[in-house]
Computed example of a mutant assay.
Amino acid sequence: MKIAMGQFAVSRDPQDNAATCISLMQQQALAGGAALLVLPEAVLARDNADPDHVINAAQPLNGPFMTALRAASKDNALTTVFTLHVPTADRKALNVLVALRGGEVIATYDKLHLYDAFNVQESRRVMPGTQIPPLIEVAGMKVGLMTCYDVRFPELARRLVLDGAEVLVLPAAWVRGPLKERHWEVLCSARALENTAFMVAVGECGPRNIGNSLAIDPLGVIVARGTEAPGLIFAELAASRLAEARSALPVLENRRFAKPELEAKK
């Protein structure tokens, strides 16, 4: 399966961001022959001087942003994955991962683990999800869905792989900071290696976030990466490599722990 990772700096204008997403979907990813395009987290709107803008600009899934992207995807088989904020009651929002194909939303996932760390409190305006993400199928491979801070919680990746995932995708907006790029690379590589699964992790770039998108194979080898700048990065995910890795390193068969379950909401 050929995949594309489209990293860019999200602006405060949803129309501009929709145009960027559509350009990556139609002009570049399709021209490159990708079956799966992964975009960053929170692609609807961002203003680094106004942290609440991402919530104040939130739109429903039938709003103009998603309507434009659905129309752009209608006549092709590309699967595109990203997140956007969807409004809820009390001026809050859900951080919703969307998988889009053929003009339709084929899956959604509300982010479970909210980024309350390193002096950031995502939960101040965002509600956590309550359901394990679904799997989707792309080009004959099972794909598990995660979002940004989820990568720090190995239980979710393991659960998705035990549910059948062969590829893990992770839209992200990984904030810059001391050792943060090291955290990003180590965590993404670990989730791939410990689960013998491909990892496709795509980061927003710009002054706040690191970019540095990664495609990692089931033995933890980085096979493609982005820089700190906007770009479209391609990689091939081979089912034969997955089979070789799981034969040589049968950790899924050798494990002694039960399948992780989601803790009831407190």
Rank of each mutant, 00 (worst) to 15 (best):
G220E: 08
Q28M: 08
P133I: 02
A235G: 07
N195D: 08
R101C: 09
A42E: 11
T79Q: 01
A201H: 02
A243K: 15
G220M: 08
R152V: 14
L39D: 08
R125T: 03
G203F: 07
L30R: 15
D13S: 14
T108N: 08
A72Y: 11
V81N: 00
S73G: 15
A45S: 06
A197L: 02
P260D: 13
L114Y: 12
V138A: 06
G211R: 01
N195F: 07
T88W: 04
M146F: 05
N95M: 05
L114K: 08
E155A: 13
K266M: 07
I222R: 15
E137H: 00
K265I: 14
A49I: 04
E122T: 10
A68I: 08
Y149H: 12
F82W: 11
E228V: 12
P218K: 13
A68W: 05
A224D: 12
E253G: 15
V10C: 07
P171I: 02
T20Q: 13
L168P: 07
T227H: 05
N209S: 08
V161H: 03
P250E: 06
P171T: 04
V202Y: 02
R241I: 10
A197Y: 00
M127Q: 13
R158D: 04
Y109Q: 00
L214S: 07
A245Q: 11
T108Y: 02
A157H: 11
V126Q: 11
V86H: 07
L242M: 11
I222D: 00
V151K: 04
A248Y: 03
A72W: 10
V105W: 07
I216V: 15
A42I: 07
E261L: 15
R255F: 08
V43W: 04
Q27F: 03
V186K: 10
V175H: 09
L237V: 09
A35E: 15
P14G: 03
L262D: 14
M5D: 08
G144M: 03
S23M: 08
